[in-house]
């Protein structure tokens, strides 16, 4: 591998290292707030389509959920990448892992974002 590539990869990992910490601090507010509200205060027994529709009637909550989706899932997927890099030592295997995680991250994030923007649809 050339020195240029090594330099590039190090700088990506540096960005990822910092991003995990800054997004983590942000997620304290977003994720703790979400868990306390939905799991503890409201509770799963009071959550249904109407509840989601009511919540998403407010664009503030939609933006909250969009930020939570974007930061939490990216943070989580990069975490999985870090854990796997402890076990996968071959360069080409790690590249395959990275591509697979990138695809999963993109597909699932787009699904979630589509639902947040599209909102609750009526049952046919």
């Amino acid at each position: 591998m050339s020195a240029v590539n090594l330099e590039k990869r190090r700088s990506f990992d540096q960005i990822a290292w910092n991003a995990m910490r800054y997004s983590g601090v942000l997620l304290i507010f977003l994720a703790f707030g979400h868990v306390l509200l939905q799991d503890v205060i409201v509770g799963v027994h009071r959550i249904d389509l109407d509840y989601v529709a009511m919540r998403w009637a407010n664009w503030g909550w939609r933006m909250y959920d969009l930020f939570l989706l974007a930061f939490a899932f990216a943070h989580g997927m990069n975490g999985v990448r870090q854990v796997l890099s402890d076990f996968v030592h071959q360069e080409r295997h790690m590249r395959a892992v990275n591509v697979a995680l990138l695809v999963v991250w993109l597909v699932v994030t787009l699904m979630g974002a589509a639902a947040i923007f599209g909102g609750v649809r009526p049952v046919q």
């Binding site: 249904d48 899932f73 989580g76 999985v80 854990v83 699904m111 589509a114 639902a115 649809r121 049952v123």
Partner: peptide, 27 residues
């Protein structure tokens, strides 16, 4: 705890997306 959370998070994003893609399956 991180791996546990991201495993559930992945499932949870998909199940919540049902409200848009397949609302009849959300419940």
């Amino acid at each position: 705890t991180g791996l546990g959370t991201v495993l559930f998070l992945t499932i949870h994003i998909v199940d919540t997306a049902l409200v848009y893609f397949r609302p009849e399956l959300y419940m």
